[in-house]
């Protein structure tokens, strides 16, 4: 993609890198080099296991960490040359929260709005409006320690939106919430984009969240982007159904791996212990034949599961590891 000067709400990053000085002068690489493009008004899910570099990348784009290398344009401002411009245009909702447990909500909302140049009155007005929109109406005198987990996450989003940013970073927005509260929050996030056109860049390690909420996914593993596209496209690229075979032991699974690898059309063959994962075109038709060949080779599986590919399979195929680990 051509390097644009960067429009409001968009992100363009090239070779964004973060290293730390480790012990004995060794360099510890947290993010190897990330290229990414986000268009205005998109909801992009940044997916990867814990420790993959999601939060580090997010913090670099939000000016909380200085990149060790690479360039980025965030909402029209150069990250290195104009971090203040970036700060004015983005909202950042951290995993850690945003308010003191014993502070009244409105006090935090007012102080937040004022730091973005709003008057106390305007901050209060927008705060009440946003709280209403995020189902927090009437709670402004409460303290955040008296809110439920879902309410607290929505409060963090109110704080991140008070200055009507063009682009919002959400770091693991639904971690620790029950399924109902998560679905409810997704609803709010989607509406935010639909009604205000806000670009949303969120990190998650939940497949269902990435699948149902994002327009497009970026998959990161070990500090590098390993896959990119819509969930449908990523799944289609797997070319086939997902097959999981369980063997009685590691040795049988190894034999199974050899057999499967020799099979016509089989792809993304990954073995973990005594379990074998692979993709097989027209799996339902091919499975009986495969099981017979496995039995002939002395490695009859003790379980077989065939499914349409999920994002978890995409992740497994891209990284050789399951996201659920």
């Amino acid at each position: 993609m051509a390097e644009t000067s960067g429009e409001a709400g968009a992100i363009h990053a090239r070779g964004l890198r973060k290293t730390y000085a480790g012990r004995k002068g060794q360099e510890v690489v947290a993010v190897t080099g990330v290229d990414l493009d986000v268009a205005p008004g998109e909801i992009v899910g940044f997916l990867g296991p814990n420790g993959a570099g999601k939060t580090t990348t997010l913090k670099m784009l939000a000016t909380l960490l200085k990149p060790s290398g690479g360039t980025a344009n965030v909402s029209g401002c150069d990250l290195a040359a104009d971090p203040l411009g970036v700060r004015k245009r983005i909202g950042y909702v951290s995993q850690a929260g945003s308010t003191l447990p014993d502070a009244p909500l409105m006090l935090e909302i007012e102080s937040q709005g004022r730091l973005y140049g709003l008057s106390t009155k305007e901050a209060r007005r927008r705060g009440l409006e946003l709280m209403e929109a995020l189902d927090l109406g009437g709670l402004e005198r409460r303290k955040s320690q008296n809110l439920s987990g879902g309410q607290r996450r929505r409060l963090d989003i109110v704080m991140g939106l008070i200055h009507r940013p063009e682009l919002v970073f959400l770091d693991e927005p639904t971690t620790g919430l029950d399924p109902q509260a998560r679905a409810n929050l997704w609803e709010h996030i989607r509406r935010l984009r639909d009604e205000l056109g806000t670009t949303i860049f969120l990190t998650t390690h939940y497949m269902d969240e990435a699948d149902s909420l994002s327009d497009r996914l970026l998959i990161i593993d070990k500090g590098e982007i390993v896959g990119e596209g819509t969930a449908t496209k990523l799944k289609a690229e797997l070319k086939g159904d997902s097959l999981t075979l369980t063997f009685s032991g590691g040795e049988a699974a190894e034999t199974g791996e050899e057999v499967a690898a020799g099979l016509e059309g089989a792809a993304n063959v990954v073995r973990q212990g005594n379990v074998l994962f692979l993709n097989l075109p027209d799996g339902a038709r091919a499975l009986p034949g495969l099981i017979k060949r496995l039995s002939d080779a002395g490695a009859e599986p003790i379980g077989a599961e065939l499914s349409r590919p999920t994002l978890d399979d995409v992740f497994l195929a891209l990284t050789g590891r399951s996201l659920r680990e």
Binding site: L64, L84, I90, A96, G97, T99, L100, Q112, D156
Partner: peptide
Amino acid sequence: IAEWRAGVVDRMLVSPA
């Protein structure tokens, strides 16, 4: 330290203040 743990410090550092 308590404010940092609650995310308040990061929230303020990411603002233009």
